[in-house]
Design a protein around this nucleic acid. Structure first.
Lengths: 221, 221
DNA sequence: GCTTGATTCATACAAACGTATGAATTACGG
DNA sequence: CCGTAATTCATACGTTTGTATGAATCAAGC
């Protein structure tokens, strides 16, 4: 029992799945290893065997989805750049590369992607603890590449201004996919994420306008 | 020792302050009552005497700032409407009423406002637990009033579309004030919230553009 | 100056936590 | 088949948790 075989190993994968769901639903500290193993129909010792410690389990849960997510984003950005054939990408296309993989993670509900997103929001809002280095390391290249892409699309914007506006755009995405219940509550249930494409279009339209603010017409701001 | 005297009572207030800070820094579950009382130089029994239970303490911490925050927002909106003297408010003014009180909570660093904001993000991203009713109840009128204000400013937008875009705007605000460290990391320390007015202007400009997206070309109406 | 009510304090307790350990069981190459 | 490594299991340990209790201390009215 060795080689890659990535996540196939039954117990190990079941623990990751249940941990992801429970962490997202209750937070890290509020979720006990016993609750996880109970739901995964595994033994308490199994988590110690496969992950050694609870902190390591948390990191494993995060890494499992974070890496593919950012790889998809970069791949999509690269694909769009190829298709553009040297021409500058539109802000909308750049945002699509940034948003679509994350939104599809939520939409393809069947698997636990929906939980992961809430978990991610938890982590970002969480303590500046041992998780921060992971976040930075995992997101560093993504941030760099998308910052460059926006600068190419909006060359008149100062570099720092691009940092600010990309930060705002991330806020829109994060709040949209992680706190869907807030939208449902404030709209009395009238608005919810059903169609991915429709949601994507709304989010992109909002952020594209924000990113290009102050240039569509000479003057007015 | 009775009458209003709101939060003056030394021990009780010290517990609320320290709880706010520790909750925001580590989350609810990860913060023990002993850690709070130790930092507040109070006895462990004091929290049980003043708040009965830990859950009640959490709610007390939230309510203390949430109510004044939303009252300030509504007051500011009302003030702007008075000044406009019947004319429709600009989207920028509406957003200022929504954002300024929250941003000032962060800026007036001295007191624990900065911690409360992170705590709020924690709560929103948290479980759909006993906190949700509080959130809804506390934010219901604010949502209703600002939704109406935006509809008046952008009458061509469908009601649901206003819900969506206001949701996006809240995401920008929340991420900006709660996850400041993310911006600092991704910008390699070059961007941070120093000047409230400058930050406010950036956030408003971004969201105003997002809210009015799709109509500037159509021609002023 | 004593009484009464409000607050603080030290201490206790049962429950739940993460972790560790060693035996029991399973899977599989030879 | 056997033997070896991988995995599962039951159980235990030492901490830490939230909460409860009753005595000690304080504040103030009469």
């Amino acid at each position: 029992m060795n080689v890659a075989a990535q996540e196939s190993h039954g117990t190990k994968r079941a623990i990751l799945d249940c941990a992801e769901r429970l962490f997202a639903a209750q937070g890290f500290e509020a979720t006990s290893l016993r609750a996880i193993t109970a739901e995964a129909e595994a033994n308490l010792g199994a988590v110690n065997y496969h992950f050694a410690t609870k902190d390591a389990l948390v990191l494993a849960v995060l890494r499992r989805r974070m890496k593919p997510l950012n790889e998809q984003r970069l791949a999509l950005l690269f694909q769009f750049e190829q298709e553009a054939d040297g021409a500058a990408l539109s802000v909308e296309k750049i945002l699509e590369a940034l948003f679509r993989p994350a939104l599809e993670l939520v939409g393809r509900g069947a698997k636990g992607g929906r939980y992961f997103v809430r978990l991610l929001a938890h982590v970002l809002a969480g303590p500046g603890s041992y998780l921060q280095p992971l976040i930075q390391e995992e997101f560093a290249e993504k941030n760099r590449r998308f910052h460059a892409a926006i600068r190419r699309a909006l060359p008149h914007l100062a570099s720092d201004e691009v940092h600010w506006r990309l930060h705002f755009a991330h806020g829109v995405l994060l709040h949209t996919i992680a706190n869907t219940h807030v939208l449902e509550l404030s709209s009395a249930g009238r608005c919810r994420i059903t169609n991915i494409e429709a949601t994507l279009q709304k989010v992109i339209a909002f952020c594209a306008a924000g990113l290009t603010a102050g240039e569509q017409v000479k003057g007015k701001k």
